[in-house]
Design a binder for these strands. Sequence first.
DNA 1: TTGTATGCGTTATCAG
DNA 2: CTGATAACGCATACAA
Lengths: 364, 364
Amino acid sequence: MPPRKKSAAPATGAPVSMADLARELGVSMTTISRALSDHHSIGPEMKRKVLKLAKKYNYQPNRLASALRKGRSKLLGIIVPYIEGRFFARVVHGMETAARQAGYHVIICQSNEEEAQERRNIEALLNLQVAGILTSVARTTRDYQHFDQVTERGVPLVFFDRRPDERPVHAVVLDDQEGGYLATRHLLQQGCRRVAHVAGPQYLNIYRNRRLGYLQALQEAGIPPDEALISYGDMSQEAGAAALRQWLKLPAPPDAVFAAGDYAALGVMEAALSSGLAVPGELAVVGFSNETFTVISKPAISSVEQRCEEMGQAAVRLLLELIEADGSVLGPRQLVLHPELLVRASSQRLEVSAAPKETKPRRK
Amino acid sequence: MPPRKKSAAPATGAPVSMADLARELGVSMTTISRALSDHHSIGPEMKRKVLKLAKKYNYQPNRLASALRKGRSKLLGIIVPYIEGRFFARVVHGMETAARQAGYHVIICQSNEEEAQERRNIEALLNLQVAGILTSVARTTRDYQHFDQVTERGVPLVFFDRRPDERPVHAVVLDDQEGGYLATRHLLQQGCRRVAHVAGPQYLNIYRNRRLGYLQALQEAGIPPDEALISYGDMSQEAGAAALRQWLKLPAPPDAVFAAGDYAALGVMEAALSSGLAVPGELAVVGFSNETFTVISKPAISSVEQRCEEMGQAAVRLLLELIEADGSVLGPRQLVLHPELLVRASSQRLEVSAAPKETKPRRK
DNA sequence: TTGTATGCGTTATCAG
DNA sequence: CTGATAACGCATACAA
């Protein structure tokens, strides 16, 4: 192979290093390094010259070398259960945007909801010397010591949406209870008196909290909860439909349903319509997650918006704060985001006088 | 700060280096390095000892140092216009999966459809010494020299879905023309004779090709194309609705519509239904992209599935091939994936005797 | 204000 | 089969 040329020349796409620039200018590498990082001890004269030459040769710093030297890279690791769902895709969108603005880049890993994969991802990210890690715990994770390993190594860790319970961790979460409360209260305000609930797996805190919010709203309205009106399932469309069919057999069937997920809400609604029930007239329905199809379905489904992008951005901001604090942060930092109820046709019983369809039409 | 301890001890989460292991075992770093990378010139005895110690101290290699030394990392850069859409999220899912299986990690960047951002992303990825780059060109990109820069630096580059026209690049794309052809032919086979087309911006090759497929099917059936039956727009739901309203004013309105996107198809369908037209009875509709809502809408919308995950995996496989070939690949490598028409209710005019709703029910 | 020297953790090239 | 040594490109403590 051809020997390295003496004078820096961008003939081919050859990478130019600081040493090359130093040689060319007849100064030391230190000067170059300082000039490029805008160190105060460099004369404006020199600075100009260095920058000019750097531009001329299109100098590009080797971030890896820099990271190796400094012991920390400008990389953030993200571990999500899966990326193709709408929720995580939107969160990652917010994260990438916030990270980029701060000069960081993000490495995406998927755990596929498996603890073992999560463990491997953590290890790999640490080996890549990431500056911090953002993660949403896999469904199957029961043991959390691989997360402890992260903080023990001095790498900041922020959980988002799904966090380990009862552990003092940094986290950004949605107030799911508030979401459940808002949805249920809204149904009660529409005049409904027997509000049923399609609940998700209770070992997941998000579903537990949505259910708590449901109960809170009932209690506030002085309505005793009725376990017969709560259906536990996997939140699928079919689960929602099945739940409704059961409820219709009751002596006093519900006049409203709050489903902890949009697919279940859709299932409820379709089962209702095909049983000849009017929606929202005889059965009002609210879902959760603001999936794309909620706007499109007939009638459009009211739903709780989770502010995914904000969650992503907030998580990155918190992580960067921890990174810059460099271990001097004491207690766990928590950030709770507030959900937003989007009222659409499926729950709109009372005629709203000249009001827009969605209470807060913030989306484009 | 406390001085580095002499003997490697995992008291805190202190990173253990090869030097630590070497000291502990009383051998040289070279031996450690070789034993860990399973070099042939290391005795099985020694190998065992090293591996045991590495496990004991939970040694983790510093990938950055390795990459710096070898001049290439195990990182792949991905640049997508945006990650939160279903299409790119699914593609990235396929990419991450394939990359992980090969021991690589992926860095995600978004261009936000802006050429300037695309340029910055490329620069940043090169500075991170990625082993290769996967990208889908931003809408606004007119100048391609930032891509040339990548290959000039010796870094393999693979385009997916959106590729620069007329340039000899490595690319994995969907056969959009075939998609348009399949959709249109299917409508003709259903007995439709006046098939209209909602087309997208023609400066994007994907929409151009879908339109070509449409024309091809017409020609094959001996039906002369009618420009009055082609509507050009932004593929929004409203654009689809507007197109249909226009067509209904024609002396001979269409009896079928192939829309180059699902949202437009939905718009067409809803406009038709609200004009009292029966779907598929009086107007058959086929969309493109297999969006989630197509299954959910009433009637369910027939659509062309793009095999996003396969595209992502294929792109990664091609990229890895180029990386391992180390510049010895001559001409541009092309890979064309075949779309799949999913026939649902919106286009099903003829009764299919005891056939499943979707022709090839491959999805779960 | 600038330069010298050293090390970050790994791998490759020698020589033994 | 193993070891000493020199890089990779950058950043900093220290000296001038």
